[in-house]
Computed example of a mutant assay.
Amino acid sequence: MVPMNDTSHAASDRADVLREHGLRATAGRVAALAYIDRHPHVTASDVYQGLRQELPSTSPQAVHNIVQDLHTRGLLRRTDLPDSSGAQYETRTGDNHHHVQCVVCGRVEDVDCVVGHSPCLTPSDDHGMRVFAADVTFRGICRTCEQDRADQPV
């Protein structure tokens, strides 16, 4: 399978990946994958806004359906972050990376697992469950926002 987070892939490669996952390679799905490859951590609304010119006949509901289908088939990772305007999607799947989020501007970046093997964390009590993933969101202030705050008069 072609890793989807390599932005050099052509539309035909994305179409092949969609078919490998049991989905028809529609223009909307191919365009959504390409857009999310280039803009990780976006909401369905962001994707819609980014594709409106390329696909003028698409609708917000169609894009919501597309990202849900891609997520269900494992082509997108969905993350629900605090203080976000909605679920965010990215094409980096199949690993157990985490995220860091600026509490001021909302910027989100990937954080690779820092120690051990996935899921990177061991719960104090797993309640009899086999744990296969751990979602961690580090929250802080990015340098740009911190500098902007320092530059503002008191």
Rank of each mutant, 00 (worst) to 15 (best):
A15D: 00
R19N: 13
V17G: 00
P119C: 06
R19G: 07
A34G: 02
S118R: 12
C142H: 08
R107D: 04
G128H: 06
P3C: 01
R107S: 07
N5V: 07
D13W: 09
D148Q: 10
H127V: 13
D135S: 12
C145N: 05
S8T: 11
Q88D: 10
R130T: 12
H127D: 15
P153M: 12
R139N: 07
H21Y: 00
V47K: 06
V131K: 07
A34I: 00
V30P: 02
H117C: 14
G128R: 08
R52H: 09
S59Y: 10
R78D: 01
I36M: 03
V131G: 03
L18Q: 03
G50T: 01
H98Q: 11
D151K: 14
R92C: 05
P40I: 00
N65D: 11
Q152S: 15
A25K: 06
H21L: 01
A150F: 10
R78I: 01
L75H: 01
A133E: 11
S124H: 12
V67G: 05
F132H: 14
R107G: 01
A11G: 09
A44Y: 10
R149M: 12
D95W: 11
T58E: 09
D83K: 14
D126G: 06
D110A: 12
H71M: 13
T7H: 02
T122L: 11
R24I: 06
Q53H: 12
N96D: 13
R73I: 03
A25C: 03
E20T: 02
D46C: 07
Q88K: 14
V47P: 08
S45I: 04
C102S: 03
M4N: 09
A34H: 01
R139Y: 09
L55G: 04
Q152G: 15
D69I: 02
A25G: 07
G22P: 08
V131W: 03
Q49H: 15
P60S: 04
V136I: 15
V63L: 13
M129R: 14
R52I: 13
D69E: 15
F132D: 15
A27K: 13
P60F: 01
H41L: 05
T43R: 11
H97L: 09
R52V: 14
D80P: 03
V103K: 13
C142R: 07
A134G: 13
E20Y: 05
R19V: 14
G140T: 09
E109M: 06
V42T: 13
L70F: 00
C145H: 06
S84L: 05
D80Y: 08
D80H: 11
A27R: 13
V114R: 15
G140H: 03
S59P: 05
R77Y: 09
P60Y: 02
I141D: 00
V42K: 02
I141A: 00
P40R: 01
M4H: 06
D125M: 15
A134R: 10
T144N: 05
Q61E: 08
Y89H: 10
I66S: 08
A133N: 10
G22R: 06
D148L: 11
